[in-house]
């Protein structure tokens, strides 16, 4: 499958602060890619480099086959971008935004614009400053979708929106992706939403991309293993796949990557009284990667000293 976007070895410093560290990521055409990370993890920087708004310190980024830092206008017109916070002009009406935006986009569809305004029950004569936050988000989505983007990039588009507006956003994304050759990249903190509609997941933590794979693969590989021991649980474990570990009395709750029969057999050799394996939802997987991964890595390197 071709890639709508790809980055290789992407590194970006702000001063001496490393915001992205050697990121490799592929965005297959036709996918809905959910980019996850805590605040300050580097999501927005990655998106801005992809769009050519920022240059990387090292590494390369390409968008629809063109280098991201030298995007031809014709390529830029095929990309829709919803910035965090939905920046619109409060004193302008919706129709004035329409007249302002349309000339930049040769693929613009008046039909889509009118249909979406009607769907969201937005009045074209309304001044944007008088609209609610949810309605402003809808306006920026309408302006973005009317450009018929081949690639839609959205930075936390549903931040601060109520569940009904969020649901309509997801609905619009589903409609868009059903058209041949469309691709969506979005970041969000609402992992239930991401789990519904994303088919590829990237997890970025302190500038490093820890996960870049199909959601189904992630959910097959990452499992929670609960082992209860008759006596004292083993203190140290030589399990490279370990992502997180919690101990409650004589029970160990392990989160492991790359779960398979071989790992199961190795864990069974620790001779627990019971061993239970469960699948995890995206939120649990995300938390295991972002809150425990670092701590465990630090413990490991400390143990090596």
């Amino acid at each position: 499958m071709a890639d709508a976007a790809a980055v290789r070895g992407l590194t970006r410093y702000f001063g001496d602060h490393c915001v992205l560290n050697g990121v490799d990521l592929r965005l297959p055409v036709g996918s809905i890619y959910g980019l996850l990370g805590r605040n300050g993890a580097g999501k927005t920087t990655l998106i801005k480099i992809l769009l050519g708004f920022l240059r990387p310190t090292r590494g390369t980024a390409s968008l629809l086959g063109s280098p991201a830092d030298r995007l031809p206008l014709a390529v830029r017109a095929r990309v829709g971008y919803l910035a965090e916070g939905h920046h619109l002009y409060g004193s302008m009406t919706i129709d004035e935004h329409y007249r302002f935006t349309k000339p930049f986009y040769p693929r613009w569809s008046d039909d889509a614009y009118r249909r979406l305004l009607a769907y969201y029950e937005l009045q074209p004569k309304r001044r944007v400053g008088t609209l609610s936050r949810g309605q402003q988000a809808q306006v920026s989505l309408v302006l973005c979708l009317a450009t018929q983007p081949e690639l839609l990039i959205m930075d936390d588009p549903t931040l601060g929106l109520d569940p009904a507006v969020r649901r309509e956003f997801l609905d619009s994304m589903i409609t868009l992706i059903q058209q041949e050759g469309r691709t969506i990249l979005f970041s969000s903190h609402i992992l239930g939403d991401v789990e519904r509609i994303a088919d590829h997941i990237g997890i970025i933590e302190q500038g490093e991309l820890l996960v870049d794979c199909p959601l189904a693969t992630l959910q097959e590989r990452v499992r929670c293993v609960t082992m209860t021991f008759a006596g004292e649980p083993p203190a140290g474990m030589d399990v490279p796949e370990l992502l997180a570990v919690r101990r409650v009395e004589r029970t160990l709750h392990l989160t492991v990557t790359r779960y398979d029969a071989d790992l199961h057999a190795r864990l069974a050799m620790l001779q627990p009284a019971t061993l239970e394996v469960q699948q995890m939802n995206l939120e649990e997987i995300f938390l295991a990667y972002t809150s425990d991964y670092r701590r465990l890595a630090q413990q490991r390197s400390a143990a090596c000293l």
Partner: peptide, 8 residues
């Protein structure tokens, strides 16, 4: 549309 999930 009904389930609000990815068509793929």
């Amino acid at each position: 549309k009904l389930l609000v999930i990815n068509p793929n």
